[in-house]
Design a protein around this nucleic acid. Structure first.
Lengths: 221, 221
DNA sequence: AGGGCTTCTTAAGCGCTTCATAAGCGGATC
DNA sequence: GATCCGCTTATGAAGCGCTTAAGAAGCCCT
């Protein structure tokens, strides 16, 4: 999941980026409206978090122009508390959702999930890669058609790897997501976790990329 | 079951809240249209009771905006204007039902039940899973043919689990439904509740999924 | 309003599961 | 062939859920 974050406030931007990366999203942080418009045009992102009130170009204009260019990427607008008008305009301009600053980062996560769920076809709260299938709603996991019981940590790890299936996930990124940024886990906790997970699935679903991290290939051979 | 009540009249609001809580619903009472819109967008509620004629923002506008943002939560509109116009507008704007003030609280209960039933795609007022059978209208519970007396909380819990029978229901989700979103219940309240319910039924009808939540299996073996 | 009853929440102890740690091992890389 | 990195396993610690008891809150009846 690739998210474009458009925000000119350094502190807030950094905080959001960190929070999103924790949730295993890939984040491109842009500070300028012009850049944002160019990036949006490419349609490489799965979601855009757009601050209104930007230098270079107003956020609302960016949105309007992007929609005029038939960019269909979901957009969540972030706006300061005061303007009720801004909200209405945002929705009119083609935003899919908006958040009033200040907001809880948890809430942001919830909105993103709800939006991507909606975008990926209704109730598809389910990720499938090869013989693997996990349900984010009920936390149920199936491998080769059989139900598998996972612990919470194992599930979290699998979820992250599957959300980024086909791409390498850095070891550091995994550790941050699983154990938090500050908390440096002393030893080979991650390796142990990978091991137990492999044992419950199979030993070739999760590939090791030596020196970098792990990945689940999208087209399993 | 979490219900958002939007009503600015203190007396009526309090009365409705009380009545709903008696029926074992969790109620968040908001008095302002702006608040209501924000809460609605979260989509955490199972149902919204919306008064038209609000300060801050008209109830109808709230509804229209929410629907425009693809909020699918069922909404019951309450209106004092007994004109046909208001009703039509309400339904056009995306309300699922409406009530003309003044109304009997009994009727409100009936509407809520019917609506939640519809939302879950259930034909009857009765849910049956294995040897369990509950009646949403009369709140009667039968297990292996015998009537069982449950308290309100126990009934709520059982209802949620049965509505989603066969699927794991996350602990967090249960706590939200039973105790409200903001209100974090301190300790093992949920566990105690599960325990008393199990004692009244049997100890194998509700399965624990460690680290995630609980579930009632659809095909009991 | 008050007393008695039910229901609900909190808290604490216990057993079992899950997890992080450390230490030894094997294979890859230079 | 030395070194580094990840795999594997055992072990003690932490976490989670079950259970029970008791105080708080809510409800009902005079």
């Amino acid at each position: 999941m690739h998210i474009i974050l458009v925000e000119d406030d350094p502190q807030l931007g950094a905080a959001i980026q960190r929070a999103l990366e924790r949730l295993a999203y890939t984040v491109s942080w842009l500070r300028d409206g012009r850049e944002a418009l160019l990036a949006l045009r490419d349609e490489t992102a799965d979601l855009v978090l757009l601050d209104l009130g930007l230098p270079g170009k107003d956020g609302l204009d960016v949105l309007i122009e992007a929609r005029r260019a038939h960019v269909k990427t979901p957009v969540i607008v972030m706006t300061a508390r005061d303007g009720l008008e801004a909200r209405v305009h945002g929705l009119d301009a083609g935003a899919d959702d908006y958040l009033i600053k200040p907001f809880h980062l948890d809430e942001l996560g919830a909105r993103i999930r709800s939006l991507t769920r909606r975008a990926h076809g209704l109730a598809a709260n389910r990720i499938e890669v090869g013989a693997l299938s996990i349900d984010l709603g009920t936390s149920e996991v199936a491998f080769r058609g059989e139900r598998i019981e996972l612990t919470r940590r194992e599930f979290s790890l699998l979820q992250i790897l599957m959300e980024r299936a086909g791409r390498l996930v850095r070891r550091e990124s995994l550790e941050n997501s699983l154990y938090g940024i500050d908390n440096m886990v002393g030893s080979s906790a991650l390796e142990v976790l990978v091991h137990t997970l492999r044992r419950k699935l199979s030993f070739d679903t999760i590939q090791t990329v030596r020196g970098f991290g792990y990945m689940i290939p999208r087209e399993p051979k």
